[in-house]
Amino acid sequence: MELNLLVSSSPHIKSQQTTKKIMRDVLIALIPATIAAAIFFGIKILLVVLVTVLSCIVSEYLWTKIFKKKSTINDLSAIVTGVLLALNLTPTIPLWIAVIGGFFAIFIVKMPFGGLGHNFINPALAARAFLMASWPVQMTLWQNSAFDMVSTATPLTLAKGGTEAVGSLPSIFNLFIGNVGGCIGETSALALLIGAIYLIIKKVITLEIPLTFIGTVALLTWIFGGENLFEGDFLFQILAGGLMLGAFYMATDYTTSPITSKGKVIMGVGCGLITAVIRLYGGYPEGVSYSILLMNLVVPLIDKFIIPKSFGGKKL
C-alpha cells in the first residue's frame, strides 16, 4: 500500500491529559461551592456567575479578534477565570460591576501579557482587587442568607471588631458548612473541601501550597491572634474568610505559582504570613487575595533561584 509515514521526534505516544480537561476538572471541582452558594444566598448568584463568565469569554474572544490571533476560548480557561472571579464577589454585587470585573481580568490582566500561561498575577484576584478599589461600597455589601437581606458583616469583620460590627461570632459549624456572610464562593469550607479532594484525586493540584498556606495562617493566628500568646482561635481563622477558596483554588493556579516543590512551599508560607499579618494587624479584615497577588509577583524570583540539582548533577 502507498504509505504516508509521519517522521517526528520521540516519544510517539501521549497520555490522554489535555489543558482543556484540566480546566474542566477545575470547573467540576467548583460545582459544590457554587451549589452551596445558591443554597445559602439564593439562586440569583447563578446569574452573577453566568454574567461574569460571559464577560470573560467575550473579552477574550474580542481580544483575539482585534489582534488577529486564533481564538483561545476553547481551552475553557476564560470560563475558569470567570467562575473564580464570581465566587470572589459579594452575593449582592450589581451585575454591571461583575461584567467590568470580567473584562478587567481578561482584557487587562491576562491577554496583553500573552494570554494563557503568561499572566503574571492571578487574573480573577487582580480583578477583585481592582473592583474593591473602584467600588468599595458595593463590593462590601454583604448578606447573611437567602432569606435575610439585611446588610451584615462577615465573620472576619466581626472578629476584627470595630464600631460597625454587629452581632456575635458565628459558630464553627456554621463557618464549616457556609451558613455565614461573605463572598459567594468562600463561605462553605465543606463544599470547597469536597472540590479540593476531587482536584487532588485528579492530580490537578498538589498539597504543598494549600497545606503550607493554611498551616502558616493557623500557626500565626494561634500564636498571635488571641489576648495572650498561643491563645488564638486558629480554627475560626482558617474556616473564615477566603482562605479555603484562596489556598486550594487560587494560590494553586499553575501559571502564577512556582514549578518546584520547594518553591511551592515558599509561596504557601509567604501567602500565609501576609494573610496573617493583614488579618491581625492590617487595616483590612481579609488578606487572602492580596497575599496571593503579592506572592504571585515573587514567583519568577522563586523560580529563578530555586533550581534543584538534577539526578546526577553537582550543585552549580
Binding site: 517526528s8 516519544p11 505516544i13 501521549k14 489543558t19 481551552d75 494563557l116 500561561g117 499553575y254 505559582s257
Partner: peptide, 12 residues
C-alpha cells in the same frame, strides 16, 4: 500517535 500541534505551556 501523539498530536503534532503544540499549545502554550501552562506551567502545570
Amino acid at each position: 500517535i501523539s498530536k503534532t500541534v503544540e499549545s502554550v505551556c501552562i506551567r502545570c
